[in-house]
Design a protein around this nucleic acid. Structure first.
Lengths: 119, 119
DNA sequence: TATTCATATGAACAATCATTCATATGTTTA
DNA sequence: TAAACATATGAATGATTGTTCATATGAATA
């Protein structure tokens, strides 16, 4: 064993207590990963703007693109990510595809985020 | 004007209605950016794990590193990001620096996220 | 005051990601 | 069925980001 092997913070007692608590309360690795994935989806202003539009109405792709002044392709790529993560759902009507919010948690999460940044 | 200039979705009436609603309800550009920035912070499993530890106790950097099996440097970099975004606060005690949650919204946001991924 | 411990930080690198461009798929209509 | 429209998607690219490594700062102690 090396001389400088980590003992870290000296207080072995507190340390082991902590490790025990953490191992008991920390969610599974896959849940942590899924959680981070979910918040990553909220972590882009284009997707946030799409969600704000969908707070107001069910909207087709090209109207989303027009309302946000972005290309159809860019919007479509982001809608795919939102849908994969079950934040929005879609419905085809003729040539158009209409998107809407899939989940009430979306509003809550964004509302809490807004509260936070307003201190 | 080009032949194929976008009229998009044909229904000019609905389109203008939408643009009006969006311009009225969409937050400022800077708020959208700040919101995305905030959620970006939650969008990394290392930072999520740090927050879960801090749900249980006030912890110094090296115990965090030990509990999460990561280097002190990696943890310290992530703590800086968490602190910049006011999700954690810190307190120096001798050589150690103790971190704790800064804000009640953190728990709410993560709780909502967990509810969402559990469908 | 020199050493040791705890933490912070800059640079570098690999990985991830949002947008663009070109094109494909699916639907309606002439 | 051919053309036009709405949407989806693969590849490429520039930008962002998490970790590592080396080192700096700050505090206690011998």
């Amino acid at each position: 064993m090396e001389k400088n092997e980590a003992i870290c913070c000296d207080n072995v007692e507190v340390h082991e207590e902590l490790v025990k608590i953490v191992s008991e309360t920390m969610p599974e690795e896959t849940e942590l990963y899924d959680l981070a994935e979910l918040f990553k989806v909220f972590g882009d202003s284009t997707r946030i703007r799409i969600l704000f539009v969908l707070f107001e109405a069910e909207v087709c792709v090209c109207d989303l693109a027009a309302a946000l002044h972005m290309t159809q392709s860019a919007i479509s790529h982001q809608l795919r990510i939102l849908k994969q993560n079950k934040l929005v759902k879609s419905r085809r009507e003729g040539k158009s595809v209409f998107y809407s919010l899939a989940d009430a948690h979306v509003r809550t999460i964004i509302a809490q985020g807004r509260e936070h940044i307003e201190e």
